[in-house]
Design a protein around this nucleic acid. Structure first.
Length: 210
DNA sequence: AGTGCGATTGACT
DNA sequence: GTCAATCGCACTA
């Protein structure tokens, strides 16, 4: 922290991600997003976190929500890369995804965990939890900490606003990979990415070794 | 109109 | 480690 003055903008430490810099390939995008920032601007202040865990839901993936074609719920997955797809899982947890392919092609990256950076006290209020490690470890917790819901579905995340993606500090550690969490279809595909050695990714230890 | 099912979480043994 | 809550959505009729 602190050596990123070259990236500084008027209001924030980080510039938004440039869409042209996003890989047009879902698995590569999932890896690319490790180390980037999710920034949420709330009335109380800015809340942000560094992405430490993602999962790719690729083209033709039976586990992906776009697999059976476009519906009212999943249509944001078909937007140009860099748009939010937010849905409600299990009736209680919102999931933040980033669309990842060309317009009309449905695929996305699930943001599964953040290392909290700015606005930790706000996250603690939003989550009703004090523990730093639990604030955004898991996709549902992440959305709760940042107050993300279906209202953000379809938002372009490549511009500063209520919710956007920022360039992070360069990733120094290794990026690990594993099978994805919580799915039954295509369960053997290695499409989960995480920052090795970080305390903030979700998942059992057994998945966080490679 | 009815049915079944999760890209999870938190509580509990 | 196990397990149930919870509800929007897709699917069938």
């Amino acid at each position: 922290m602190g050596r990123t003055n070259a990236l500084k903008t008027g209001r924030h430490r980080y510039q938004p991600l440039a869409r042209v810099a996003l890989p047009i390939d879902t698995a590569r995008m999932a890896r690319y997003l490790i180390g980037k920032m999710v920034v949420r601007e709330l009335p109380q202040g800015v809340v942000s976190g560094r992405i430490v865990e993602t999962e790719a839901y690729v083209v033709g993936d039976a586990a992906g929500h776009a697999y059976r074609g476009m519906t009212l719920r999943n249509r944001s997955l078909f937007l140009e890369r860099g748009h939010a797809y937010v849905y409600l899982a299990y009736g209680s947890s919102y999931m933040l995804n980033v669309s990842s392919e060309k317009p009309g092609i449905g695929a996305g990256v699930l943001i599964r965990a953040l290392e909290p950076c700015e606005g930790v006290p706000i996250m603690q209020v939003n989550r009703g939890s004090e523990r730093l490690r639990d604030l955004a470890r898991g996709p549902g917790r992440l959305a709760q900490a940042l107050r993300i819901d279906r209202g953000f579905d379809g938002l372009d995340l490549c511009h500063e606003g209520a919710l956007w993606l920022g360039r992070g500090d360069p990733v120094t550690g290794e990026i690990g990979q594993s099978v994805r969490i919580g799915i039954t279809q295509e369960a053997n595909r290695v499409l989960r990415f995480y920052l090795r050695g970080s305390a903030f990714p979700s998942g059992p230890k057994s998945l966080n070794v490679r």
